[in-house]
């Protein structure tokens, strides 16, 4: 990690849905620049909500979220969008736009936010980014023609095309076979090296967590239960923590 300053700081994050559904009950997380943080936890422990709060897809009830030193809650929509452009979000199933080809999926955010790009520059950026995720051949395919792993790669390419500094992965290997999961995990590392990104990875896949993490945070019932490296947590004496590593 090049720089140890925190790029993401989450302090006392609360979120509930309705009266009796408290999902986050005061989550505290910080992520340093260049770090790959994996968040583990059982289903419903608030992992996905935490990263959705980071881009204000979900509004937190209470708490402070600072990204690049800026408190997100104080930003209006235009200011928030400036921050969002520096953050990439890979959704669970890629969230590709069904009505667009792979090329159009990648070109869509680029044409919006890099208006100065000529058509050939846009095409070049699309081809380069697709190549970096190993999917050059899929450029003119529709999302419906892609496999689960390919969809995630294209989703990642679409995220990367705007050159984000932070990448948020929501269960990047869920629903994939072991080999493809491994490929995606390797891709996460190669992207981090190539683009010098900071990442938060939500996963249930321990192989992915082991391969990609610099540090792991485990959430339980809306709170950070424990944190540490894969190796230290694997040797934890806490049975509940160890249950993740079996």
């Amino acid at each position: 990690m090049e720089n140890k300053s925190p790029i993401i700081e989450i302090k006392g994050l609360y979120k509930s849905f309705g009266k009796d559904k408290d999902v986050l009950k005061g989550v505290n997380i910080h992520v340093k620049k260049g770090e790959n943080l994996v968040i583990l936890g059982k289903s419903g422990s608030g992992k996905s909500i935490t990263i959705k709060c980071l881009v204000r897809l979900v509004e937190a009830d209470r708490g402070e979220i600072k990204v690049f030193g800026t408190d997100l809650s104080k930003l209006d929509n235009d200011e928030l969008n400036v921050i969002r452009l520096r953050i990439g979000f890979l959704f669970q199933n890629g969230a590709l736009y069904d009505s667009m080809t792979v090329r159009e999926n990648l070109g869509f955010p680029l044409q919006r936010h890099r208006a100065e790009f000529t058509e050939s520059q846009v095409n070049l950026a699309i081809e380069e980014t697709l190549e970096s995720v190993g999917l050059s051949e899929a450029i003119d395919k529709m999302p419906s023609e892609l496999s689960g792993g390919m969809r995630k790669r294209v989703g990642l390419a679409r995220t990367l095309i705007l050159k984000p500094e932070i990448l948020l992965y929501d269960e990047p290997t869920t629903g994939l076979d072991t080999i493809t999961s491994r490929e995606i995990s390797e891709l996460i590392i190669s992207i981090q090296k190539k683009y010098k990104t900071t990442s938060i990875i939500i996963t249930h896949d321990m192989a992915c967590a082991k391969f990609t993490s610099n540090r792991i945070v485990i959430l339980r019932d809306g709170l950070v239960y424990t944190e540490g490296t894969y190796e230290t947590l694997e040797k934890s004496e806490d049975e509940w923590v160890r249950s993740f590593f079996i």
């Binding site: 969002r84 669970q92 955010p109 919006r112």
Partner: peptide, 17 residues
């Protein structure tokens, strides 16, 4: 509706669109 449930609308929003 299908764009909403497959998070395509969220994807647009996080891309500042």
């Amino acid at each position: 509706g299908s764009m909403k449930v497959t998070e395509q609308i969220d994807a647009m929003e996080v891309s500042a669109i």
